[in-house]
Design a protein around this nucleic acid. Sequence first.
RNA 1: GGCCCCGUGGUCAAGAGGUUAAGACACCACCCUUUCACGGUGGUAUCAUGGGUUCGAUUCCCGUCGGGGUCACCA
Length: 546
Amino acid sequence: MDLNKLADALIPDDDLQPPAYYEEKYPPRAMKKGAEVTRLAPSPTGFMHLGNLYVALANERIAHGSGGVLYLRIEDTDSKRKVEGAVDVIQSSLRYFGIDFDEGAEIGGEYGPYYQQQRAKIYRAYAKELIRRGRAYPCFCTEEELAAVREKQTENKLLPGYYGEFAKCRDLSEAEIYQNLAANKPYVIRFRSEGDVEKKSVFHDEIKGEITVTENNQDVVILKSDGIPTYHFAHVIDDHLMRTTLVIRGEEWLASLPIHIELFKALGFRMPRYGHNCSIQKIDETDGTRRKLSKRKDPEASLVFYREEGYHPLAVRIYLMTLLNSNFEEWHLKFPDKPVEEFRFSIAKMGKSGALFDLDKLNDVSKDVLARLSAGEMADFLQTWAEGYGTAEQQSWLTDRDYLLQVLALCMGVGAKKRRKDFVTAKQAADVISYFFRAEENPAFRADGETVKAVLQNFMAVYDPADDNAAWFDKLKKVAGALGFASDMKAYKAAPENYRGNVSDVAEIVRVALTGRANTPDLCTIMRILGAEECRRRVAGVVANV
RNA sequence: GGCCCCGUGGUCAAGAGGUUAAGACACCACCCUUUCACGGUGGUAUCAUGGGUUCGAUUCCCGUCGGGGUCACCA
């Protein structure tokens, strides 16, 4: 069979460059030893998964930690999944969490274009070359035919797929091929595999270590009927031509590694190194089993979730780093103020087994991150969050910057010996500080109405905003004593039956009346921030209703 | 089902042929304290299982079990 003629018939494009042209156009990168070229290659589906960020962080740290390059390639070969504006979503969400690319889509670079759709000619050139060499052939099978074969294979407990005797179009005669072409039958281009599933070999995975791979024997599709390549083919060509040195990707790709290995070999490309990263999982409530975080079932699977909730990007970053590198957490505990970039990220320290997503742990990390912010930084963070996701009311709270800073300084314990860790997320923080901006609707007291009224009236009668903390508390104790509450905790503990309660019960009444909640930072300071007038108004409201 | 990956407390995990099997989160108790938070002290809890190698295996080997992934003209 005249393979050159076949190649021309199958891929008639007259504007293709020979493979050698691309080899020269995209030469190996001049980089210092040890520098890694890594990439992120998401599909523009408009949805960004936590797993995307997870693997992005690993690639980013490896590239930048080694003085290498991180680039963004858009895998838009499936037109059915493509969503308008998805590339913006990818870039903006990754940037929010601190992933910056050196080259790639929308940034450009010497190894572009970085959209696979724009690289169609390149793939076709290599596919044509494979046809000429007899390593690729046209397949005219319809979807129905393939499905029927698969069904039969499954029935007979055979390996499903297009291989060996089941590869009907593999050895079509020249006449049959041209007949089909003349009849305008749609066709795909398949790779002619020479592998044998009985043969296994050891492969070194940068994360998993020594793994065994079974040879591929599938004649996989490399060019779909629309002339666009499949993932497998595009991956091999792109990562070769873009001179990727290390591919860190999800372990769901492990199963197709044999295909990639054979394609690299057939094309005569040197393979990049691979690291297959485990995925973030969660326990399914319905059956108690582990599974990947699901886009459909788990809101926390989406990167949008963390922005809506107002998680600080650094918190998410630190949390993911603790999952990614087992010694990161200890390092971070030791040097809490050092930027993450200073940590020596190592592929060797990446875990082999999938980790369960732990919101408690993330929350704990978040508290620490927020507690290290200055009041000004926290105010900025809150404002940015509120502009995007807060209610109109919450936005209005933040307009008086000076007032806000006073509130934050108190709630964060700025200036105190130890910082408070009340804030977890921006959303939760907004809720925590709400009482500074509006009185609570129906404060719930544990004490009876008469007692509440007496405590509030007595205390407000002597309250003086000019008092310092000690004087303020002295007055509270006097009120407590006058009403039969113990003003001295030790005395109370010695003989609680002699009292109606103690000074903390009295403080609680004032606290609840003013803030609507039983737990707040220092009450005296809260009253100072609210102002005497506002305090009196709130107390009056409570006394009238109780 | 075939193939592949994984298996140390509830979670993330360090670890090495011999350890009292680190640490963090969560949980519990106590202390501090006008409440809460912070902080401090202490505590509960782990090597999936069977066999082999070995003086000794949680660690090395094999089987079993369990969990996960994958078997598209999707990535």
